[in-house]
Amino acid sequence: MRPNPLKALWAEGKPAFGTWCTLVNHPRFMKLLAACGLDFVILEMEHTDFTIRDVSTLALMAREAGIAPIVRPPGLLSPHDLTRALDAGAQGLLLPNVADAETLERVVKATKYHPRGERILNLRGPHTDYLRLANPAEQIARINAGSITVAMIETQRGLDALPEICAVDGLDAVMIGPDDLSQDLGVPGLLNDPKMQAATERVIAVCDEKNIPWGFSCQDLQAAEKWLARGIRWMPFANDAAVLFNSFSAAATGLKTLSQRN
């Protein structure tokens, strides 16, 4: 079974770099991202029309290409929304809006096999690369260890409960969800507002104290450089729609200028 490359990076104290898949659901896109040298890709199900079939195909191709597929599920209420993505080959989950330790504990129990959790047992599928080891206990341990759990902090409640959230066995990293968090803090979309800056500093302080990798999306190398100096270890860089829009809008503007087209 393929190991999760993020686990090895974090064990060495190194940052992991990826991007979001929100628009392009062609499996070749996974190969392209891997060829670019990224470590992971987030397959977005909360804000897209991607189906479980789309995610299954993309996750399978990502695994084959050597890039870790991480799924953000549409929600946390149904355990099936979580386990189906993992059974489809996801090597981790990005959990939206984790507001308390109890919610995270419930999710971990639903997504980890015995003895940590109660995930429905399935020892042959995309998540095992269709291999079945002779020793079930060894296979279960390897699957549990290889699947990462990233909790998104998107509310004041989540910020307040962060020390308890970080204490849950099975949490691998914390991500700030800036848009929803800014809205909950009363400054929607104002990511440079002092309230958002204070929230970011709280996440960094708590996670550093607990030795939990932390991060958020960065949109350019200047921002990435700033946060790498602070110790960020989970960095989705832009997303497919943003990269396409930024590249082609800059090209269109440049071409019209060169051709003196108004």
Rank of each mutant, 00 (worst) to 15 (best):
L123W: 02
L123A: 08
G125W: 00
P126W: 05
P126M: 09
H127N: 01
T128V: 03
T128H: 02
T128A: 07
T128Q: 12
D129P: 00
D129V: 05
Y130I: 02
L131S: 00
L131D: 01
R132E: 04
R132F: 01
L133G: 10
A134P: 00
A134I: 03
N135A: 13
N135I: 02
P136N: 05
A137K: 14
E138A: 14
E138G: 13
E138R: 13
I140D: 03
R142A: 07
I143G: 06
I143T: 04
A145L: 09
G146P: 01
S147E: 14
S147F: 13
S147C: 14
I148D: 02
I148H: 08
T149D: 07
T149L: 15
T149N: 15
V150F: 04
V150L: 06
A151I: 07
M152D: 03
I153R: 11
E154W: 03
T155R: 14
R157M: 09
R157T: 15
R157W: 07
R157Q: 15
G158Q: 09
L159F: 06
L159W: 00
D160H: 15
D160V: 15
D160E: 13
D160K: 14
D160A: 15
A161M: 08
L162G: 01
L162K: 09
P163N: 13
P163H: 12
E164Y: 01
E164I: 05
I165Y: 08
I165C: 11
C166G: 04
C166K: 10
C166N: 11
A167G: 08
A167N: 09
D169W: 08
D169C: 06
G170V: 07
G170S: 12
G170M: 15
G170P: 10
L171H: 03
L171N: 12
D172R: 09
D172T: 02
A173N: 11
A173H: 10
V174F: 06
M175I: 00
M175S: 11
I176Q: 08
I176E: 04
I176W: 00
P178S: 11
P178R: 12
D179L: 13
D179I: 11
D180M: 12
D180P: 11
L181R: 08
S182Q: 04
S182P: 03
D184T: 09
L185Y: 01
G186A: 08
G186H: 07
G186Y: 03
P188G: 10
G189A: 08
G189W: 05
G189I: 00
L190R: 15
L190Q: 14
L190K: 14
L190I: 01
L191S: 01
L191K: 05
L191Q: 07
N192L: 10
N192S: 15
N192D: 14
N192P: 00
D193F: 11
D193N: 14
D193C: 13
M196L: 06
M196Y: 04
M196W: 01
A199H: 11
A199C: 06
A199S: 06
T200S: 13
T200R: 15
E201T: 09
E201W: 06
E201S: 11
R202F: 00
V203Q: 14
